[in-house]
Design a protein around this nucleic acid. Structure first.
Lengths: 125, 125, 125, 125
DNA sequence: GTGGTCTAGACCACT
DNA sequence: GTGGTCTAGACCACC
């Protein structure tokens, strides 16, 4: 497991867990790994693992039962919303980024469709 | 000017300058703002500004003339390559991210088009 | 510890550390002094020490574990390559320098062999 | 003409001129380029060129006649001494550097001969 | 004026 | 404790 050193580790782990929830790998209501298990799983410090759960809880993605552990929310709408948020975020990043490179949405979509990713750029002005 | 606190400032400034170069706002061979000017422009410390130019120089995006300033590379191929790199990075982020949300490429492109229409139509979900 | 004022301190420290690695004083995979320790060891600023490690990391000579410290690369080939590079650099400097003094390689080697270093030059043209 | 950015330009120019004197390209007593000519020749600033001559004069390598220009010293012993100094400096650098890489003098000389062959395309004297 | 280097001291994320 | 980043302010060589 390699982390991007330019981004806080806890943010990167949060994203990974959110993905597991969105994908149903961690189903609604399921017990999540303990803080220690999480720490081992991602080879991070337990403090960092703890922070991950704290943030997820703040976002309503999971909740804790004292003495029993941490659980995925049972709120299906919240999970759906999470998926939408994450997808929208990706879309936004992509379209914005492309626009700031002077690439129109149509071009961007064209480039996306060609999975070969070959880009014969045009305008460097 | 607001910076994302989760990303080093110098990296964000690097990206902004790269975009200006790719867009031709900073044309090839042009003199770039002095370190001190850059510091003022982005309200950062001259040291941080200096670091920005140093990293860009390491990437072959700009070069330095002693006592005269910093200049955009005159290597057109390098600028084109930069544009390609930045676009591919965005494409990669998008497709990977979508895939990790369990969204197929076709779906992803559909969502992209829809969002694109929303941008243009002014509708808000 | 005295530094040559005509050469940036960080470059001189880099060379000293590279030598320690080449000589095995700092073995492969070993933990290197912390940034703060290095700063004390060479009586330089922690910032300068940090720069030293950063450049070494760029060269693939060392790597960093977040919160744990800086470590010598475990890539033996890289260390061997480093030694070769440093030796070649010295050879190049020597032969080039001698040639530019109008001293043939054979003469240069002769002078080298006589460890007395006494030079009774011949041709001032 | 490219200068090593890690070394003051005036020092690099001094070395180049010393070499020309040692080689007799600039013979003893000869008139040297004017400060302005030197500046143009090496594409350096006249201030830097001026400093070069000042330092060379301090070392007894050249002298100035008011209104007439700068001239190579007429002291043959001084020129010979200069050549010796420069050669010994190179020898010292080489042997010291190799020793600090843990390479014995015999090995160093072997490597030197080998490199020499490479330079000369296998021509051994 | 320019960039390059260095110091001093601070805050942050992570172990 | 660790390295990474940032600020503030200084000096230097060079133009």
């Amino acid at each position: 497991m390699e982390f991007n050193p330019s981004l806080p580790i806890y943010l990167q782990v949060i994203t990974m867990i959110q993905r597991e929830i969105v994908l149903g790998i961690l189903p609604m209501g399921a017990r999540m790994p303990s803080v220690r298990e999480l720490a081992i799983q991602y080879t991070i410090n337990p403090n960092t693992a703890s922070r991950v759960y704290k943030e997820l809880e703040n976002e309503g993605i999971c909740f804790t039962k004292r003495g029993m552990g941490t659980f995925v929310t049972e709120n299906g709408a919240r999970v759906q919303q999470l998926k939408t948020e994450m997808a929208q975020e990706l879309i936004h990043q992509f379209l914005d980024g492309m626009q700031q490179l002077g690439i129109s949405e149509e071009e961007a979509i064209q480039m996306l469709k060609k999975e070969n990713h070959i880009f014969k750029g045009g305008n460097v002005c």
